[in-house]
Amino acid sequence: MSRTAEYIRIVGLNVSYDGITPAVSNLDMQVAEGDFVAVLGPSGCGKSTLLHAISGVVLPQSGIIEIAGQPVGTGRGDQSVPIGYVFQEHRLLPWRTVAQNIAIVLRAAGISDEEIDLRIDRYLEMLHISEYRDTWPLRLSGGQRQRVSIARALAIQPAVVLMDEPFSTLDEVTARVMRQQLAELWQESGQTLVFVTHSIREALFLANRIFILTRGPASVFDVVDVPVARPRRYEDPQLTELEAQIVEHVMDEWGYGQPRAGDDDA
């Protein structure tokens, strides 16, 4: 199957919430089909806004956003380009069970009822949470809730899965396990993933390419490829090396001045 190099195509994107202050300014980005890319930026730089624009929730002032050659639809019930989204806080409906949460989204995507059941089983299995099928979200731990959120995103078999710092609220051990499993999941499914984070190490561990953003308003400062073989180890010295390089590279851009000699920001 030939892979489209410009599966996600963003050109000259300008997004502003109030029409006056831009959150994203003149941003260009291309993502190949099936690729796992990270978007890296300091807090408040507009990376979440970028995701909002890609998902069609926020209308850009100007610029092009196309996925698989189609512009992203923005209306309710518009399923032209299905998008999966994993938020920072799970955003599960607390008054519906795990299975119901996924079903609601599948139904909105126009999937038939029998298919819905099959997918729920399959994706809960994939995320290792089959036993929680009929549980209420509030009874689950943070990590489990995020798994449900990911299962929900994957279940609609979207064109692209957007992830907005999904592990930042979890404890470090859980987060590590989740990263590991996410990487494995991606290798199996070949899903196109755009992963937003402010952790350089996380980006290096997970992605093939990293889009580094400027401080707000966001545009792409640099693109870094991560030629490290998979499966990767979180403590791999190659990653440490790359991390140090990136840190030095962005120090000025993100406004932290010249690092002193011998300073390692791990």
Binding site: S55, R76, G77, P82, I83, E89, V105, I156
Partner: peptide, 19 residues
């Protein structure tokens, strides 16, 4: 935040209201 989630997954209005 839940409203936004509903928008991202393109929930039709009736479903949005109901769930």
């Amino acid at each position: 935040r839940l409203d936004e989630m509903g928008d991202v997954y393109r929930l039709p209005t009736s479903q949005h209201a109901r769930h």
